[in-house]
Design a protein around this nucleic acid. Structure first.
Length: 926
RNA sequence: GCAUCUGUGGCGGAAUAGGUAGACGCGCUAGACUCAAAAUCUAGUGGGGUAACACCCGUGCCGGUUCGAUUCCGGCCAGAUGUACCA
């Protein structure tokens, strides 16, 4: 009998559950460490081997930190609101809560068999009213706050109201869409509705008519990060631009802080870079162009140095000044163009980026510096959402303006000469010169300046003459926060005489109502509108939208600190103790969604004093994706005959995906294949060496490609410890890699070998109390040192290699000494918790291994009195010489030169130099 | 187009501070045990070369710094990911 994981693994899982071994409580005597996994959306498909990768890694680190004496918080929960459950509800009528509950139970059982050390008492579910009460509470706070640019933080909206009453909004510097100024007097005379409308322009959570990504297939709007290439991320349905009244969050107010604080985080450069790009800060200038009708048009530019190169202006088709600008002659054409542009779907627009289109308004602006007349055009290459929705076109130095000028035959004026070039005839150009280095020409007072200096000088000039001002623009947009769906958090808002009014905090949570169908109403209202009595006691209607998928995950890491608190999101005490997440593990696909939104919300909660940290996740590791490895069989065209991979060239074949569970090391199990599907029952095969070899390809892991590897099957076959080790052994945590079961035998062998160290031939536990030998101690301490270093840098694959070497050495030494094997058992416990708990118990220990301390590394065991010096001659390794440590460089050189092997290579030539690197190498240059 | 990352045997991958490249595992080859198989154990396994050594070549490509480069610098090529009319 060998190591029996089928009996031992459930035994210890039960032990941990019953003893609440991993329960985390505030303990002032211990330092805290908070390890968090991105909680999963419980989909109907269950877990595949890709999901546990991060969970196993975080579990190893949690267990390691516990051994080091840290009080570890390691919770898990479910991001339970989401589209799939709702889509399923629409099709079947089954309540999404039931689907979700079932899926969660399946997830839980799959997680349990992996032996993960979660504190399940802290589980959260975003669809649980006790949880979403705080999602709604956060929304009320966002609604009740504005962002003060002077203080650089969120402030209560009441403060703003009292300022309005005293002095109007003349001196307010806040993040707002309010452009009209008013006095205290005017404010007092506003109607309630007017006041509410003004305040709405300042709130951090606000209602506005905004251009949204509307997906009619899903019947809802989507955030920018939920749309890729003009189609929805979920489902791949077309998305169009549409103006709708929606809730938004003023995340743009936090752009600067979100950008700057990236520097304080221990994240990978690539992830920080993704966020920086998404925020997209650009420094530049706003410039006013006077119009002939007396109005003024504001544009944003990063290239104020090229002002004299402006030969036309372009407005986006949505620009509000189009009507007033269009002349009578151009009216018809402009209207035609604008309606054409508005009706294009996002996808069409993106697909035809290179096609130039546009129309002339008939009007002109006056160039602020030269006084020349500049024609004003309309084109959809100018985006409504960025800057002012209008640009000054400098065709000579901007490729888009250039393409436009070429297409409509507009003048092109060169104002920058790149270093080492001469001014050229722009009519001969095939492309613009966009480079940001060179000397300015044809530009009056800017002539001769370098681009960089010219930008500064130009901005200074326009500021002095009141023609504009230096400013900053961000690409980041406010987050659209409402969805026209059922399965989400209702907004704690009702409408009193058309004014959006918050319900009081004491009425939270506002429960998600029951509905008869999960579809929009006949009049096109969201599904919640179907609910009976969806109104306050006084009969005012509630908001019918629900919050988006990311709402529930914004502050979940904070809620885990105090998940059962009914009085607050988190108590001061719990928040002070747990602070924020020390280690966060999850996929990088959340870079511009969850990771940005939750940073924003955490900063907001910090501003209102609800939490003590500005950043939610101090260190972040993105585990790589595990791709699927699909197998193929090759069917001869037209007949039911299959050709082995290497012989398929002789036939005309179609590759067909075959279930990887009936393929072993690319060899097809023909019997199982025949049973797999009715149509293959009578199939013929052309074999090679008596086997049918399948082809393979690396693809996404997906049910439809028959390449999903289920962790349960592997646990059943090899045990959880082996699966844990193997997932880590597969390669570096952060790298994407294809799943491949080939190597799992190797770690399975290692586990059995490890077990055998503690047992004799008949599988009886035998450890001796004898003192360990020098070699045994060396093997152990070498391992302690390296494993600790490897864990610290999350190189779990190499730590496992180190364990393998150690076990091999101890097997060779026939070591069965407790002095060695007890610390080794502790050392391995984060990786393989079940087998080590069993051995720990066999060794006579009463408590769980989690409370043991990490084995101390004894340097003295590894100290040698001699060192093997590699000797290189002219940089090439030629010999090894054993030399006592601590002797002088001169002596080392003497010994080296006296060596016969070395003499052979020096071959009598004069020695130019000897380079001696202590403990490393001696290099002789001849 | 732009940004970030990656490129090492038949395969997954080591090499932590510029110092004997290929640890560890898989696979493969031979052998031991066995009637046989499984399991286990032993030896070998980058390429060329040799009876065996010696020796030569080798970390995507080209160049640089250095006594010495997988590692640092410059330029290219390829792949992955993200993002894209952001003025």
């Amino acid at each position: 009998m060998e190591y029996n994981f089928r009996e031992i693994e459930p035994k210890w899982q039960n032990f941990w559950r019953e003893n609440k071994t991993f329960k985390a409580e505030i303990r002032e005597d211990k330092p805290k460490y908070y390890v968090l996994d991105m909680f999963p959306y419980p989909s109907g498909a269950g877990l595949h081997v890709g999901h546990p990768l991060g969970y196993i890694a975080s579990d190893i680190f949690s267990r390691y930190k516990r051994l080091q004496g840290f009080n570890v918080l390691h919770p898990m929960g479910y991001d339970a609101y989401g589209l799939p459950a709702e889509q399923y509800a629409i099709q079947t009528g089954q309540h999404p809560a039931i689907t979700t509950e079932n899926n969660i139970n399946r997830y839980r059982s799959q997680l349990d068999i992996l032996g993960l050390s979660y504190d399940w008492d802290r589980e959260v579910r975003t669809c649980d009213d006790k949880y979403y009460k705080w999602t709604q509470w956060t929304f009320l706070k966002l609604f009740g706050s504005y962002y003060c640019n002077d203080a650089q933080k969120a402030r209560p909206i009441e403060e703003l109201i009292s300022v309005f009453e005293k002095e109007g909004n003349q001196n307010i510097n806040a993040a707002t869409t309010q452009s009209e100024k008013f006095s205290a007097e005017e404010w007092k005379n506003f109607s309630d509705k007017e006041k509410a409308d003004v305040l709405m322009n300042y709130r951090i959570a606000y209602l506005s008519d905004s251009m949204v990504n509307w997906c009619s297939e899903l019947g809802t709007v989507l955030a920018n990060d939920e749309v890729v290439n003009g189609v929805s991320v979920r489902g791949g349905y077309p998305v169009e631009r549409k103006s709708m009244r929606q809730w938004s969050l003023r995340i743009t107010a936090y752009a600067e802080r979100l950008l700057n604080d990236l520097d304080t985080l221990d994240w990978t450069d690539s992830l920080k870079e993704i966020q920086r790009n998404w925020i997209g800060k650009s420094q530049g200038a706003a410039v006013y162009f006077k119009l002939e009708n007396g109005e003024s048009l504001e544009v944003f530019t990063t290239r104020a140095d090229t002002l004299f190169g402006v030969t036309f202006m372009v407005l986006c088709p949505e620009h509000e000044m189009i009507t007033s600008l269009t002349t009578q002659e151009q009216k018809e054409e402009v209207e035609k163009y604008v309606s054409w542009a508005k009706n294009r779907s996002e996808r069409e627009r993106q697909a035809e980026v290179k096609k130039v289109s546009g129309v002339f308004t008939g009007s002109y602006a006056i160039h602020p510096l030269s006084g020349e007349r500049v024609p004003i055009w309309i084109s959809d290459y100018v985006l409504a959402g960025y800057g002012t929705g209008a640009v000054m076109a400098v065709p000579a130095h901007d490729s888009r303006d250039f393409a436009f000028a070429k297409h409509f035959n507009l003048p092109i004026k060169q104002v920058v000469v790149p270093h080492g070039e001469q001014e050229e005839d722009t009519s001969l150009w095939q492309e613009s010169k966009d480079s940001k280095a060179g000397k300015v020409i044809n530009s009056d007072f800017l002539n001769g300046l370098d681009v960089k200096d010219a930008i500064k000088t130009a901005i200074q000039y326009i500021e002095d003459k009141n023609l504009g001002y230096g400013t900053v623009n961000y690409r980041l947009r406010d987050a659209i926060y409402s969805r026209q769906r059922y399965w989400g958090e209702p907004f704690p808002i009702y409408y009193k005489d058309g004014i959006a009014t918050p319900i009081s905090e004491s009425e939270l949570p506002l429960l998600l109502p029951e509905v008869d169908k999960y579809l929009p109403t006949e009049s096109g209202e969201p599904p919640i509108a179907r609910a009976k009595n969806w109104q306050t006691k006084d009969g005012y209607p509630y908001d019918c939208n629900t919050m988006p998928g990311f709402a529930g995950s914004n502050a979940y890491s904070i809620r885990y600190m105090d998940p059962n608190n009914t009085e607050a999101l988190v108590s001061k005490e719990a928040n002070q103790y747990w602070q924020n997440v020390d280690l966060y593990i999850g996929g990088s696909e959340h870079a511009t969604g969850h990771l940005l939104y939750s940073r924003f919300i955490t900063k907001f909660l910090f501003d209102i004093g609800a939490v003590c940290k500005q950043e939610p996740y101090q260190k972040l590791i993105n585990q790589g994706m595990i791709q699927g490895r699909s197998n193929f069989v090759y069917r001869v065209k037209g007949i039911n005959k299959f050709v082995s991979y290497n012989l398929k060239g002789e036939f005309e074949t179609d590759p067909i995906h075959v279930d990887i569970n009936i393929v072993d090391n690319d060899v097809l199990d023909i019997e199982k294949f025949r049973e797999w599907r009715e149509e293959f029952k009578n199939a013929d095969f052309v074999l090679e060496d008596g086997k049918y070899i399948c082809g393979y390809e690396i693809e996404k892991m997906s049910k439809s490609l028959y390449n999903v590897q289920n962790p349960d099957d592997l646990v059943e076959k090899y045990g959880a410890d082996t699966l844990r080790l193997y997932e880590m052994f597969l390669g570096p945590l952060e790298q994407s890699k294809p799943w491949d079961t080939k190597g799992i035998e190797g770690v399975s062998r290692f586990i059995r070998k490890f077990w055998r160290l503690y047992h004799d031939k008949d599988n009886n536990y035998t450890l001796s109390e004898e003192a360990a030998t020098k070699d045994e101690l060396k093997a152990l301490h070498k391992t302690i040192k390296k494993v600790q270093e490897d864990i610290e840098r999350f190189s779990f694959n190499t730590s496992i290699s180190t364990f393998m070497i150690c076990v091999n050495e101890l097997s060779d030494l026939k070591c069965n000494k407790k002095e060695i094997l007890e610390p080794l058992c502790i050392l391995l416990s984060p990786f393989a918790p079940h087998i080590t708990e069993e051995l720990w118990n066999l060794m006579g220990n009463k408590t769980s291994i989690s409370f043991a301390s990490f084995p101390a590394f004894d340097e003295s065991v590894l100290v040698e009195n001699t060192f093997k010096y590699p000797i290189s001659i002219n940089g090439k390794m030629r010999a090894n010489i054993e030399i006592a440590l601590g002797i002088s460089q001169e002596e080392v050189e003497k010994i080296v030169l006296a060596n016969a092997e070395v003499q052979k290579y020096i071959d009598g030539k004069p020695i130019k130099k000897i380079i001696f690197v202590p403990k490393k190498i001696v290099n002789v240059v001849v």
